[in-house]
Amino acid sequence: MSRTHIPGILAMAATVVASNILVQFLFGDWLTWGAFTYPIAFLITDVMNRVYGPAVARRVVFAGFVVGIVCSLIGTQIHGEFGPLVTLRIAIGSGTAFLVAQLLDVAIFDRLRDGRWWRAPLASTLVGSSVDTALFFSIAFSSALVFIEPSNDVSWAAETLPLIGMGPEVPLWVSLAFADWLVKLTLALLALIPFRVIVGQLTQKPA
């Protein structure tokens, strides 16, 4: 790993740590502040992929995964009003979603890297973000997966409510996932601007 790759690793680690902290603070009824920082991980992965290639991007992803595991281990030791800040299901969901979604992002980006400059980062982030959301929320909160951690009561997540307060009746966790997914999609589009700028600065040529 070259020293030029260290900023990417540090940026990924900072994003993972910040997201693990900010997920504890609510933003409205359906989101946490962590929803706005976590998508930066896809931007970091895509920049590293474009500038240094998929092998380096995967190393950055694995570094972020390790940091995430450490954050989860720390979270299991911190108890809030309703128990540990991080339960086993949340830890498994978070780690699985991050690793699968980020590696999928790397693979899709690499397949599309020779197309228009925006195609690879946009497609890889949209697919990766969608998989990330589906995996995390279903593993962490779906009643169908209660066997993962039988002692963890997530019945509150199964409460039936209108989708984000205005749609059809769905379990609460589906509304949380849908709101999170919408933020990820929005930020995937906005991230094209910093992607173009950062890649241009690092390569001194158009992305």
Rank of each mutant, 00 (worst) to 15 (best):
S2C: 02
M12K: 00
M12D: 02
A14T: 12
A14Q: 09
A14Y: 07
V16P: 00
S19L: 03
I21H: 08
L22S: 07
V23T: 02
F25G: 12
L31H: 10
L31Q: 06
T32N: 15
W33I: 13
W33S: 06
G34W: 03
A35G: 06
Y38R: 05
P39S: 12
I40N: 01
I40V: 15
M48I: 13
N49E: 10
N49W: 02
V51R: 03
G53H: 11
R58E: 05
R58T: 13
A63M: 01
A63K: 04
V66Q: 04
V67R: 06
V70R: 04
C71I: 12
S72F: 09
S72L: 09
G75Y: 01
T76V: 08
Q77S: 15
Q77N: 10
Q77E: 14
Q77G: 07
P84T: 11
L85M: 12
L88S: 09
T96N: 01
L99C: 11
A101R: 02
Q102T: 08
Q102S: 08
L103D: 05
L104V: 14
L104F: 09
I108H: 04
I108L: 15
I108P: 02
D110G: 05
R111C: 04
L112I: 12
L112A: 03
G115D: 11
W118S: 09
R119S: 14
R119G: 02
A120K: 00
P121W: 00
L126S: 00
V127W: 01
G128L: 01
S130D: 05
V131W: 09
F136H: 00
S138C: 05
I139Q: 02
S143C: 01
F147W: 15
E149M: 06
N152S: 13
V154P: 03
A157L: 10
A158E: 12
A158Y: 11
E159C: 05
E159M: 09
T160Y: 11
P168N: 10
P168E: 14
E169D: 15
V174C: 00
A177P: 08
A179I: 13
A179C: 10
A179N: 07
D180Q: 15
W181M: 10
V183K: 07
L185E: 02
T186C: 14
A188N: 07
A191D: 00
L192A: 03
I193S: 11
V197K: 04
G200C: 11
G200R: 12
Q201C: 12
Q204F: 08
A207H: 09
